[in-house]
Design a protein around this nucleic acid. Structure first.
Lengths: 196, 196
DNA sequence: CTCTAATGAATGGCTATTCATTCACGGCAG
DNA sequence: CTGCCGTGAATGAATAGCCATTCATTAGAG
C-alpha cells in the first residue's frame, strides 16, 4: 500500500539501504544515514517501510526476484545439463561481481540468525537452490549424471562452492582469480572431479 | 592478564556466551543474559573481557585453536590425499554436529562484516582452509590429482560445499541426511565428479 | 588488616521510531 | 481567474527505551 505512494522514492531508499548496510552492516547502519543517502527525511522511511528489519527483508526479496528470473533465463539457454551447470556457475559469479553491495548483504547480513533464515522462511533462496537440484535430476534422467548422486546434497555442495568463492571476493578487496577461470574450475571439479 | 584471574570462570563465561550468541545472535545478546547464564555479575564479565566484541573474538580464537589441532591430527592419520580429503569432510561435519552452538556462531556471526572477517584478519580460519590446499598440493605432487587444479580455488570449493551443508543442518532443526552419507557424497563429487 | 576479585545499581550514550507540524497540490466555489 | 480548502505526503525534532560499561562498595582470602 504505502509502496504505491511513490515507487521512485521507494527504490531510492532500497538503493541507499543496500549501500549503507553493505558498508556498515545491518546493526551498525543508522536510519538517519540511510535517509541522508536516499535524500529523504528520517520519518519518510517509515512511510515506505514498517521498520528497519522490513527494509532488509524488502531489499532482499526485491533483489532475489530479479536474480531468480535472470538465472532461469540463463540456464534455459543451454540444453545439456553439464553446460547448464557451467552456465549457472558463471552467471552466479558474474552476478556477485556486478553487485558487490548486494552480495555482501546476502553473504553476511541475511544470514543473521533470528530475524532471517530462521523465523523468516526464505523461499526465494530455496527456489534458487532448487534450480540446481532440477538440473541434476534432468542429468540423471538423461543418464549423463551418476544415479547415486543425491540432488538435495549436490545442490548444496555446488552452491556452497560458488558461494565460498564469492565470499572471498566480497570480503577481500582484491580479486585473485579471474571469474571465468573460477567458474570453469568449479564446474569442472563438480562434473569430473579433481582426481585423475 | 585478566585471564589469569580465574581460568575456570573465564571459560564459564565463554561457554555461556557461546550459548547465548548462538540462540540470539551477537547483537541481540545482552551482557546481562550472558552473565546470568554464566552465573556471575554483569560487571564480572568486564574483568575477564574488554568488551562485548572481545568476548566474541576470544570465543572464536579459543574454539578455532581446538578445531585446528583436532583436524591436523585427523588428517595426519591418512596417507593417501584422497583419503585425507574424505576424512576432512567427515571430521568437519562431525565437528558441526557436536558443536551446534559454536557452528552457528561461526556460520552466522563471525561472518558479520566490519568487526570480523574484515578489520579482524582471521588467521585461524585461513590456516584451516590451507589444510585443504596442502592436501591438494600433495596429491598433485604424487600425481593423483589433476595438475590444472588451482589449490586456492579448490580449497574454497571443497570447504564451501561442506559449509553449505552444515549451514543447512545448523539453521534447520531437523537433519535430512546422515552425516556419513553426506561426507562421502561430497568428497566423492569433489574427487570423481557427478558426471559419468 | 590489606588487597584483590566480584558485585550490580546507576549512568550515559545511542538511535529507532513517533507525531505535531509544514508543505504542495488539485479541485472547487465565487 | 483567484483564493480557499482538504488531503495526504514529507519533515525532523523530540521521545523513549534499551543496554554496554563503569565504579563505589562489599566480600573474602591470606
Amino acid at each position: 500500500m504505502s509502496k504505491r505512494k511513490n515507487a521512485e522514492k521507494y527504490y531510492r531508499i532500497i538503493k541507499a539501504a543496500t549501500k549503507i548496510f553493505a558498508k556498515k552492516g545491518f546493526y551498525q547502519a543508522k536510519i538517519s544515514e540511510i535517509a541522508r543517502e536516499a535524500d529523504v527525511a528520517d520519518g519518510t522511511i517509515y512511510i515506505y517501510f514498517e521498520n528497519k528489519d522490513d527494509i532488509l527483508i524488502c531489499l532482499f526479496e526485491e533483489q532475489m526476484k530479479a536474480v531468480l528470473d535472470n538465472m532461469v533465463s540463463e540456464i534455459s539457454q543451454e540444453d545439456d545439463p553439464a553446460k547448464k551447470l557451467e552456465r549457472f556457475a558463471l552467471a552466479h559469479l558474474k552476478l556477485i561481481e556486478n553487485n558487490k553491495s548486494m552480495a555482501e548483504i546476502i553473504q553476511v547480513e541475511v544470514r543473521q540468525s533470528s530475524k532471517f533464515m530462521k523465523e523468516y522462511k526464505n523461499e526465494k533462496f530455496t527456489q534458487y537452490l532448487d534450480l540446481i537440484a532440477d538440473i541434476i535430476r534432468q542429468g540423471q534422467e538423461k543418464g549423463v549424471f551418476k544415479k547415486e548422486v543425491i540432488p538435495g546434497v549436490a545442490k548444496r555442495a555446488f552452491f556452497g562452492a560458488l558461494d565460498e568463492m564469492s565470499r572471498f571476493w566480497v570480503l577481500s578487496s582484491r580479486k585473485h582469480y579471474d571469474i571465468n577461470t573460477a567458474a570453469r574450475q568449479i564446474s569442472e571439479y563438480f562434473l569430473k572431479g579433481i582426481a585423475g
